[in-house]
């Protein structure tokens, strides 16, 4: 659905995007993860046809993001990373203006969304808080029921309750079969809704993760804390791949088929506790960033 082919935009000083290739399938929710300045927004801006690439191209539904930008916008919704709504009108006037520019026949879904996010749109945009503006912008992104949705750091500025609501909305849109491309530096929101995650660093895609595989990883790590050293040593010898942690802790990594054997072995020991260590997206992310942080 969204194909990014060898996209390059060099702003000098290693800033920009370099030879980025991504392929987002129809109906997929793709998370774009990276720290500030990694090139996430730049990629979004190219998909939207605001900027022209130095090299490479992007197509959405086989339409070129620079040549056919108007056609693409008929079925695309975009939430900018930095919300800049016009200051000389109120929220409702703004949404009505955008809906007219989109030639929308019905404003029903917009009303529904305003209700959903508990927004009073009759306030002057100038007087709105950052979160309020963000919510108005979210309504403008979704109100025409677009097939492709581009979200650039969508939950920044929202309180935790509204973040939750937003994630639910994305989930709902996903059920409707929408293709969603979402950038973020918040692991939770990405790991909750995304099918795949691309980790970007200094304009390069350094790793793509399949979130299903991450969630249903057949390999799990357990941490067991023992009451005495003998049991610890005995278990460490039976599981050579395990590592001894601090204070009689042992972390053991096994595949799911061996879980019964492990429990049988542990049942002979005197334990303080046993817990599963969650492999989070954050851990992956940190690994990629810290791993070569000195270059």
């Amino acid at each position: 659905m969204i194909e990014i082919n060898h996209l390059t935009k060099d702003y000098g000083d290693h800033r920009g995007i370099f030879d980025l290739t991504l392929n987002i399938k129809k109906g997929e929710v793709y998370g774009f993860l990276g720290p500030n300045g990694a090139g996430k927004s730049t990629t979004m801006r190219h998909i939207m046809g605001f900027s022209k690439a130095d090299d490479g191209n992007i197509t959405i539904n086989s339409l070129d993001s620079w040549q056919d930008k108007e056609k693409i916008k008929e079925f695309t919704g975009y939430l900018a990373g930095e919300i800049a709504l016009p200051n000389d009108m109120n929220g409702l006037q703004y949404l009505k203006l955008i809906s007219k520019m989109r030639k929308m026949k019905s404003f029903d879904y917009a009303d529904e969304l305003l209700e959903y996010f508990k927004i009073n749109p009759n306030t002057n945009i100038k007087k709105m808080s950052k979160g309020m503006k963000q919510k108005i912008a979210i309504v403008a992104t979704f109100m025409h029921d677009p097939d492709v949705i581009l979200l650039d750091e969508p939950t920044s500025g929202l309180d935790p309750l509204m973040q939750e609501r937003f994630i639910d909305l994305v989930e709902k849109e996903k059920q409707k079969g929408k293709t969603i491309f979402m950038s973020s530096h918040i692991f939770e929101e990405v790991s909750k809704v995304c099918d795949r995650v691309g980790i970007v660093k200094e304009g390069n895609l350094i790793k793509e993760l399949n979130m299903d595989a991450l969630r249903n990883n057949e390999e799990k790590t357990y941490i067991a804390k023992f009451k005495n050293d003998e049991d610890l040593k005995k278990m460490a010898e039976s599981y050579p791949n395990s590592t001894i942690g601090r204070e009689k802790e042992l972390s053991i990594t096994i595949t799911d088929e061996n879980i019964n054997v492990l429990i049988a072995d542990l049942s002979t020991c005197n334990l303080t506790y046993l817990k599963e260590k969650e492999k989070s997206l954050e851990e992956y992310f940190m690994k990629f960033y810290e791993g070569d942080g000195d270059d």
């Binding site: 916008k73 016009p86 955008i98 520019m101």
Partner: peptide, 17 residues
Amino acid sequence: AKVDDGSMANYLSTPVS
């Protein structure tokens, strides 16, 4: 002014050329 403050992005996100 609209490019400077970013509000032009809102209008260019619609199918209006």
